[in-house]
């Protein structure tokens, strides 16, 4: 089977998640800048996708029948790079080139890196792109599925809601949006900056089948993605409640670590905690 999807048990997924978290803080430290908060909040989501859900093959990143993962919140590129490295798309050592001149690992994820479907960084664009992928699959009568990861702060962008209207209009049941609802954005708590809640109600009102879960609970994530496959003639939005900076005590729920690298002392503490 031309696929890397494997039914790793949750205990294995937990080990992978831990490794990803360590890689994320390490590579952002080395880069001297980057976005740890939202990368850490998305770790279980990407781990579940790449090791339990997606049909993909790291030796053939452009395999036409692969499932598509679209990272819309491109500033959390570190979690995507760490996951792709863990899958074998790139060498683990390359993670330390993040944000350096000439590196394939751009500050915000770019399509030029095999495994990255869309260039992102300007928020709000991924869901539309995912609709395009889902429509193409349907036209070609292919069964690949498209998964788009957004942030709750990102849902401030009007384009998200243009796309949210469009996907149910086209009855795209091969499209899943996951919102990493960590409740924080650059200027503060999402509820204070621009309240996007109630997110589930909004997506439902736009015609989506919605599933609310704890975005750090592998069992809930696995169940949600399995359930999403059974929904017909409707796209699915998984609203995943998460903790920004999850796993590193001083980064958790701390808006200061939205887009700031840890210093050497902080890295040491983080790596001690991530065991």
């Amino acid at each position: 089977m031309n696929s890397q999807t494997n039914a790793l048990p949750v205990s294995e997924l937990q080990k992978i998640a831990l490794r990803l978290r360590r890689e994320i803080v390490q590579m952002i430290f080395t880069a001297g800048s980057g976005h740890p908060g939202g990368s850490l909040s998305s770790v279980e989501i990407l781990t579940t996708l790449y090791f339990r859900v997606l049909r993909h093959n790291h030796t053939d990143p452009y395999w036409p029948d692969r499932d598509r993962f679209i990272l819309s919140k491109g500033h959390v590129a570190p979690v995507l790079y760490a996951t792709l490295a863990e899958c074998g798309y790139l060498p683990i050592e390359e993670l330390q080139t993040l944000r350096k001149l000439g590196s394939r690992l751009q500050g915000h994820s770019e399509h030029s890196l095999p495994g990255v479907e869309m260039s992102a960084g300007s928020l709000g664009q991924g869901l539309s792109f995912g609709i395009g992928c889902a429509l193409a699959a349907r036209l070609d009568k292919k069964d690949y599925r498209t998964y788009v990861l957004l942030g709750d702060g990102e849902c401030d962008e009007g384009q998200v809601w243009e796309a949210a209207m469009s996907a149910p209009h086209h009855k795209l049941d091969n499209l899943v949006a996951i919102v990493d609802k960590n409740g924080l954005q650059i200027d503060g708590f999402t509820k204070d900056v621009l309240n996007t809640e109630p997110l589930s109600d909004k997506f439902r009102a736009f015609g989506w089948h919605t599933i609310d879960i704890d975005g750090h609970d592998f069992n809930q994530l696995i169940d949600a993605f399995e359930h999403a496959r059974t929904v017909k003639r409707q796209p699915v939005a998984i609203i995943a409640k998460t903790i920004k900076g999850k796993g590193v005590s001083f980064m958790e729920n701390n808006v200061d670590f939205h887009g700031k690298a840890p210093n050497a002392a902080q890295l040491e503490i983080a790596l001690k905690e991530l065991v």
């Binding site: 036409p64 598509r68 679209i70 399509h111 479907e117 869309m118 709000g124 664009q125 991924g126 869901l127 539309s128 792109f129 995912g130 609709i131 395009g132 992928c133 889902a134 429509l135 193409a136 699959a137 036209l139 070609d140 009007g158 384009q159 243009e162 796309a163 209207m165 469009s166 209009h169 086209h170």
Partner: peptide, 28 residues
């Protein structure tokens, strides 16, 4: 009709959808 996608009055979404279609081999 199956190859035509009416996006409504939402040009931002239209360009994104077009990009996704192109990425999957279509010529939008």
């Amino acid at each position: 009709p199956e190859r035509f996608f009416e996006c409504g009055i939402s040009e931002q979404n239209m360009m994104g959808v077009a990009a996704g279609l192109a990425c999957c081999g279509k010529i939008p």
